[in-house]
Structures are given as C-alpha cells and as structure tokens.
C-alpha cells in the first residue's frame, strides 16, 4: 500500500487563558513515500503543533482540531480510535523530539526504553528483542553493551542517537523529526543528521524534518515548506526554493542567514514580530512585516497559488501568473 502522508486543510486551535490561539490555519502538506520534506519557520509558527497533530499527541484539554484530515494508508488518522493509533505510532509513523535531555525516561535503561518499542509491536522472545536492541544501537553508532546504562550516563548527542534508535527500531514508514538537532552543538548536529540519513536510506523511511535551519533543509530534504503564523506560505522543491524563492517571508528568512560568498557586514533581519496568535487578521498575516506590502494585502487573505509545478506560494505579488 502507498505510504504517503497527506495532510489536508488542517486547522488547530488552543484554548488558553488569553483566549483562542490559532496555531494551524488550513495547512496542506504531502510527504511522499520515501521522500524527505523540510518544514521551516520561526518559533511559534506551528511546526510542532503540526507534528503532534499527526501523532495525535496534542494536549487533550487545550487543543482542538477544527478542521482537516491526515491521511495515511487510506485512513484518516484524526478519526481513528486510540487502539488503532497506538498500532500506527512507532510501527508506521515515529517521532524524534526536540530536546534529547528530556525525551528519555531517567529511571529506565536505554536498552529497556528501546526494547519497549519493539515489544509493543511484535511477539518476539526476550533474546530476540535484546539482539534487536543491540543491532539498532550499533546502527546509530553506540556500542551495544551500553544498553544497560541509564540516560544520565550519555552525552546530549548520544542521547539523541538513542531517541533516533527508539524511533527507527520498528522500521517505520514515516519519521517525524521535530528539530532533532536544535539542542545539540554544531559538530554533533552534523553527525546526528548523518545518522538519520543513513538509516532512512537503509529502511526507505520518508521524513518530515522540522527545523528553523535552512542549511539543514538544503542538505537533508528534497522538498520544503515554509510556515508562517500557522500557515504554509511557500512550498517547493529544495532546488527551486534556493534558486527562485518567491514569498517575501522566505526571502527574509534567507537574508537573515550569513552567506559565505557575499561580503556582508550585517545580516538583514526581518523587522517586526509574528502577529498575535490570538488574533486572526483579515488580510495576509505577513503584511505588517512585508517590504512589498500592497493595499490588497490588508483586505483579504491570499490563496496558495501554483507558480510552477510543485511550487506554490501564498502571495498577491504572484497573482497574475
């Protein structure tokens, strides 16, 4: 069966003391089987909410899915019951979390935590489970005999490798990596990403890579979607984004990272802040910060339009195309 992950028209709100927070606004996303899709955006853009919606990990009391579907193998994950979701979690779709320091249980050995993921999805004998734990540890570059150790005996990068091992031990079809390297220092970042890449190639796993680092996307993804204030504002292949980005926000993002071949003394940040997530502006959410803002941008919201096959942008500047 086709293992594309299709997110359609997904809107999610949080009910907080400050009012309704519009976290996701009609998000569409397609992650093709075996492919790698980057999701880029500032903190608070709704990237993690998107990931948690797919895994059905949104906080039950505050989060509400207002509309939308998440299709996987012909099923709408948002409508499945928890028993079915538990079968999908880990075995079909797995997730790597942002902070390896807190995403492992401090009172269980790393071996136990990996074994758990195997045991819940299959009937294997104890020795088979142990063997599998050893194999996956070796695959992520940790000696198998360290399975007996507790998380506090590992460094941050090693912990993230353990988290990756947990996520990939059941050969999932889709991996959602939520800023897997943000909490790690740069040299370790590269190693961890390399590990993910190798394993994905071996297991033919597709990936949704959430990050705010465009360099990471360039190296690891084929497609990229740029998210701003709960919306996808531009979506294209990595090649096309880097050669012909359209949306003013995407351009702003690229300008705020240093380029090695251009001699600039100062980076150009995007002025202003993301709009208040409890307010829903009538027009384009980026209008306030946009250097190319037009009258229409404040009046109505632009739709996501195709500028070339597989390249979509949500901006009135490209309305005529």
């Amino acid at each position: 069966m086709n293992s594309d992950l299709i997110i359609k028209n997904l809107s999610v709100n949080y009910q907080t003391d400050d009012g309704l927070v519009y976290a996701l606004d009609q998000v569409d996303l397609l992650i093709k089987e075996g492919s790698s899709h980057g999701l880029v955006g500032e903190t608070g853009a709704g990237k993690t909410t998107l990931a948690k919606s797919v895994m059905r990990l949104l906080p039950e009391r505050t989060a509400r899915v207002i509309s939308g579907e998440v299709y996987y193998q012909g099923k709408d994950l948002l409508k499945e019951d928890m028993a079915a979701i538990r079968n999908i979690r880990g075995e079909q779709i797995a997730m790597v979390f942002q902070d390896p320091m807190t995403s492992l249980n401090p009172v269980l050995t790393v071996g136990e935590q990996i074994a758990e993921a195997i045991e819940v999805h299959g009937e294997l004998s104890k020795s088979e489970v142990q063997q599998k734990v050893g194999e996956i540890l070796e695959m992520v570059g940790i000696p198998a005999d360290r399975a007996e150790e507790y998380p506090h005996q590992f460094s941050g990068g090693m912990k993230q490798r353990v988290v990756i091992a947990i996520a990939l031990v059941c050969n999932p079809k889709v991996l959602i990596a939520d800023e897997p390297t943000t909490a790690l220092d740069v040299t370790i970042q590269a190693q961890v990403l390399e590990t993910i890449k190798e394993l994905r190639q071996k297991l033919n796993t597709s990936m949704l890579l959430i990050t705010h680092d465009l360099g990471v996307v360039a190296q690891n993804c084929e497609h990229v979607s740029v998210m701003y204030a709960g919306e996808i504002v531009e979506s294209a292949s990595v090649k096309e984004i880097f050669s012909g980005m359209k949306h003013p926000y995407t351009k702003g993002l690229f300008n705020s990272i240093p380029k090695i071949n251009v001699n600039v003394t100062r980076l150009i940040p995007i002025s202003g802040l993301m709009p208040d997530p409890t307010q829903k502006p009538q027009g384009c959410k980026f209008a306030d910060r946009c250097p190319q803002m037009m009258a229409i941008c404040l009046k109505s919201k632009p739709e996501l339009k195709e500028v070339s096959p597989e390249h979509h942008v949500r901006c009135y500047l490209y309305d005529s195309i």
Partner: peptide, 19 residues
C-alpha cells in the same frame, strides 16, 4: 517530554502510567 516519547512508541496508557 519522555511521556510523549513513550506515547509515540505506541505504548498502552496503563504501561505509560505505571512504568
């Protein structure tokens, strides 16, 4: 966060609570 990790493995609610 490790509770989310446990949920993401597909573990049963009772096991997550006790273990």
């Amino acid at each position: 966060d490790y509770v989310d990790t446990a949920k993401a493995k597909g573990l049963d609610d009772r096991i997550i609570t006790s273990r």
